[in-house]
Design a protein around this nucleic acid. Structure first.
Lengths: 213, 213
DNA sequence: AGTTCAACTAACCCAATAGTTACATAGAGG
DNA sequence: CCTCTATGTAACTATTGGGTTAGTTGAACT
């Protein structure tokens, strides 16, 4: 069989239709959550028939699970491509903080999907073996940076990589996921270029002060 | 008129019914979000007739707004009662971090309500004047602690109270609101007594390292 | 005791929505 | 070029769920 690229477009194209449905579902679920999203709207946005959603994905819940899984696979895959091992520990850590921030900023659907999944007590993620496996490598990554930093006398000893990981995620995640209520509470445009730059710098600072001697 | 306490219970009691509805709504909205919550379920949980909800609160959306406003008023009121001014700056800051953590832990509905509101781009909170006013005092509170700390030579200069505030909230909020997905990703029971103590200590440490010289 | 009004109930309405059924056809393989 | 199946459409169903209508009753105040 020919590669996807060279295959001339078909009127009927299962693969393309599935991709359109997944993309549409991601947008819809991100915008309205699992409960608020409408299967009809997903179908319309995907320029597909609703019947196809049920044919390919089984149910609304199953579709949600698939979109969620893909979202986790995407971020973890991007993280793995960072190649932090050749950088010195401080630069590696800063790069991870920057990456996490930028990923959340560029992929706000990820934040909404995670929120939605937590509202449902992670019952979809529980079923997913893939996500557990790829997540383990993230902790390893941070642990490696920490160990290298300690060995070079730059970082404090005994920092828990899981806690550090959570903190790196937290300081970006909270700011961005709560940007709407935050704007009202703090009476600031949290999404202006200036505000975003300020926050990223503050986050880098927070993490550096936390780990450095 | 007699005080609420001494008034003997009436079969018909507008005030009590409204309170039951608000309490039921808080639980329902927290559990299912705005979209997922069912007015019929709220009525049942409140042991009230659905008609009463519409009579007292107008619509599902208006009820949500009211519950959300109350939630913000509650946390801000509790914060104001902390009386941090007589404590030395370090203790005051630690107390605020502990308070924030404990409040989120004891009132998980607050986290869910805020998430839900952000999913809806804060369109309910925008209408609320009260919330803006009481939030201003929070920033002032942190700013006062910072100023006192700087004056005593304990804290660094130039720390933005808004950024600090956001960070204090973030490191607790993220951990607790994402406790279900977090448990899977990190393969840990994040809600065990031990895990909670560890996290709180880590958070205090993070904030202290951030502000202290 | 009677009047009045707010508190309350039950039954209903109808638009929206997850999921289905029945049918049509493109196009791959023989 | 014929057949069969995966891809697709459209119309339908059953149920849910926000909101309403119409009517009932407790109790506050005369």
């Amino acid at each position: 069989m020919l590669a996807t690229k060279t295959r001339k477009p078909r009127i009927r194209d299962a693969e393309a239709t599935q991709k359109r449905i997944l993309a549409a579902a991601k947008q819809e679920f991100a915008k309205k959550g699992l409960g608020g999203a409408r299967v009809d709207d997903i179908a319309e946005r995907a320029k597909a028939n609703k019947r196809m959603i049920y044919h390919y994905f089984g149910s609304k819940e199953d579709l949600f699970q698939r979109v969620l899984e893909d979202a986790y696979v995407d971020i973890r895959t991007a993280e793995q491509k960072l190649e932090l091992d050749h950088l010195d520990p401080k630069d590696a850590l800063e790069r991870l903080v920057r990456f996490t921030w930028k990923y959340y900023l560029d992929n706000p659907e990820f934040l909404t999907m995670v929120n939605s999944e937590n509202l449902h007590k992670a019952r979809h993620l529980k079923k997913s073996k893939v996500v557990q496996d790829i997540s383990r490598r993230l902790v390893t990554m941070v642990d490696t940076i920490l160990e290298r930093g300690v060995k070079q006398g730059l970082f404090r000893e005994g920092i828990d990589p899981v806690q550090l990981n959570i903190t790196i995620a937290a300081i970006g995640y909270y700011y961005l996921t709560n940007r709407f209520t935050g704007a009202i509470i703090y009476e600031l445009d949290l999404m202006s270029r200036q505000a975003l730059d300020t926050r990223l710098q503050f986050n880098i600072d927070t993490i550096m002060r936390l780990v450095c001697k």
